[in-house]
Simulated assay, not measured.
Amino acid sequence: MSLDFSVLAGNMDYFYKGVQWTILISLLSVLFGVIFGALLTLMKRSKFKIGKVKPLSMLATAYIEIIRGTPMLLQIMLVYYGFDQLLNINMDPLPAGIIAVSLNSAAYVSEIIRAGIDAVDKGQLEAARSLGMSQFMAMRLIIMPQATKNILPAIGNEFVTVIKESSMASVIGVGEIMYSAKVITGKTFRAFEPLIVAAIFYFVITFTLGRIMNYIERRMKASDSR
């Protein structure tokens, strides 16, 4: 069977809308993932104790391990159906997909932030503390500005990953790129051509974003060498 892309001529609007939804889901998911991931990092590094137990640290660690140890597809379906069955909330597919992808991204972003902070020489924190700075002030003024340079490139890579993994939200009816390909397949009875076009859109988005992140990383390294 030969390829026939002419059948897609009148259906490209589905892909254009799918690209918009994919980018929206990815942007919001990474944004919320960074916020929640930062909170998880603070919880994991917390020294709050009840007896000999660090409940905040244990809770954050358990969450991260569970999220990283289960498939995103399962997490999306749990969020979508869980809100309905457990909370009696009939959630639309789009917000359910954003919540699920955000919760997943937060676990990975938390580890990115932790690694970025740990990469900064611990002697700098000790020196700041010896000068009379509080833990919070030392982290804000000394550690985090340096850690950010380690964190930002990795956050960019997480953004690229989320763009690809957002395709799993199509299983609950979110109209992103893969869902658009399925719709066009149903209309044209051609499966291979829509998948090729979907792959091209994903590649263009991730390749472009990857080049932008590489440029930003080079600029940051150049500023360090001055």
Rank of each mutant, 00 (worst) to 15 (best):
D118Y: 12
M72L: 15
M178Y: 09
K164E: 07
L8M: 12
E158N: 08
I151M: 15
K164R: 11
E111M: 11
A119E: 07
K47V: 11
A62K: 03
F207C: 02
D118G: 02
F5R: 08
K182G: 11
E65W: 06
K54P: 06
I177D: 01
S2H: 12
A199Y: 10
Y108M: 05
P95G: 05
L56Q: 00
V197E: 01
I177F: 08
S166P: 09
L209A: 15
S46G: 04
K122R: 13
L86G: 01
L87D: 00
L42Y: 10
L59D: 02
K221G: 02
Y179V: 01
I143H: 04
M91P: 01
L152Y: 09
A115W: 11
L87K: 01
A198Q: 01
Q75T: 03
L73Q: 07
L103F: 13
D84S: 05
V53T: 10
F203S: 08
P194E: 01
P153T: 00
L125D: 08
L141M: 12
R218Q: 13
V197P: 04
R218F: 12
R68S: 06
L78N: 01
T188Y: 15
Q75W: 10
E176R: 09
S180K: 03
L141A: 10
I25H: 03
S225V: 12
N90T: 05
G132H: 03
F159R: 04
G69L: 08
W21Q: 08
L73N: 07
W21L: 13
I113D: 01
A119F: 13
Y215R: 07
S110N: 04
V160Y: 07
E158M: 14
P153W: 02
V109S: 03
A191M: 12
I35H: 06
R114C: 02
D224G: 07
P71R: 04
L8K: 06
V30Q: 02
A96D: 04
F136R: 04
G18E: 00
L27Y: 04
K54C: 11
T70M: 09
G175E: 06
A128F: 06
I23L: 14
Q124G: 04
S223D: 01
K47Q: 14
G37W: 09
L24R: 06
T22C: 08
I35L: 14
I216G: 00
A181Q: 01
S134Y: 02
T70L: 10
N88W: 11
V101E: 01
K164V: 05
